Simulated scan of single mutants.
Amino acid sequence: MAKYLISFDRGAMDHIPAEDFPQVGEDAHAVCREAKEAGVLIFTGGIHYSTEDELLAANPAVVDTDGLITDGPYPESKELIGGVFVVEVPTRDEALQWAAKVAKACRCPQDVRMFMHDDEL
């Protein structure tokens, strides 16, 4: 079995009207429950991006190879992940089926990538 990262970019849900978000949340939680009941859910969650009035500890940071810590990547960047859904399934087709369910629930396209397998872990 392989693990797959199903994710969407930050801002991918910006087109959704505010009044629709409660239903989006319910639909997304339903897919999470379904995946958990099917025994394929490893982890899921949205990425927290702080605002100026929130704790500094919530701000993203980059740690370089020499240990230097810098702020960022910045929320204005288009390369930020907005949410993740990790499943362990026997085939890529099954991962794509779960991605389709997440896409429908979250009302945005999903990126699907397989994790490398390491027998030593």
Rank of each mutant, 00 (worst) to 15 (best):
M1E: 11
M1W: 02
M1S: 13
A2T: 14
A2R: 12
K3E: 13
Y4Q: 03
L5Y: 11
I6G: 07
F8A: 04
F8M: 09
D9E: 03
D9F: 03
R10S: 06
G11K: 04
M13C: 07
D14Y: 01
D14L: 08
H15G: 05
H15N: 07
H15S: 01
I16S: 08
P17T: 11
D20L: 02
P22F: 04
Q23F: 07
V24C: 10
V24S: 07
G25W: 12
G25R: 12
D27K: 12
D27I: 09
A28P: 05
H29E: 15
H29V: 11
H29K: 14
A30K: 14
C32F: 07
C32Y: 08
A35Y: 00
A35N: 04
K36H: 09
E37R: 12
E37W: 05
A38N: 08
G39P: 03
V40D: 03
V40A: 03
L41G: 00
L41E: 02
L41P: 05
F43D: 09
T44G: 03
G45E: 01
G45T: 02
G46L: 00
I47S: 02
H48K: 03
H48V: 00
H48A: 03
H48Y: 02
Y49E: 00
Y49C: 01
S50M: 00
S50F: 00
S50L: 00
E54H: 06
E54Q: 14
E54K: 11
L56K: 14
L56D: 14
A57H: 12
A57K: 14
A57D: 15
N59F: 09
N59T: 13
P60V: 10
P60F: 04
P60M: 04
D64V: 00
T65S: 09
D66E: 01
L68S: 12
I69D: 03
I69W: 04
I69H: 00
T70C: 04
T70S: 09
D71V: 05
G72R: 01
P73K: 06
P73F: 01
Y74I: 02
Y74G: 07
P75C: 02
S77E: 04
E79L: 02
E79S: 03
E79I: 01
I81W: 01
G82I: 01
V84M: 05
V84Y: 06
V86L: 14
V86T: 14
V87T: 14
V87N: 09
V87L: 08
E88P: 10
E88W: 07
V89Y: 08
P90E: 07
P90A: 11
T91V: 12
R92K: 15
R92Q: 13
R92G: 05
A95V: 09
A95K: 08
A99N: 02
A100E: 10
V102T: 08
V102Y: 06
K104C: 08
A105Q: 03
A105S: 11
R107Y: 07
R107S: 09
R107I: 08
R107K: 15
C108N: 12
C108V: 10
Q110L: 04
Q110E: 10
M114L: 10
M114K: 15
M114C: 11
H117R: 14
H117E: 15
D118M: 12
D119G: 10
E120A: 10
E120H: 05
E120M: 09
E120R: 11
L121Y: 11
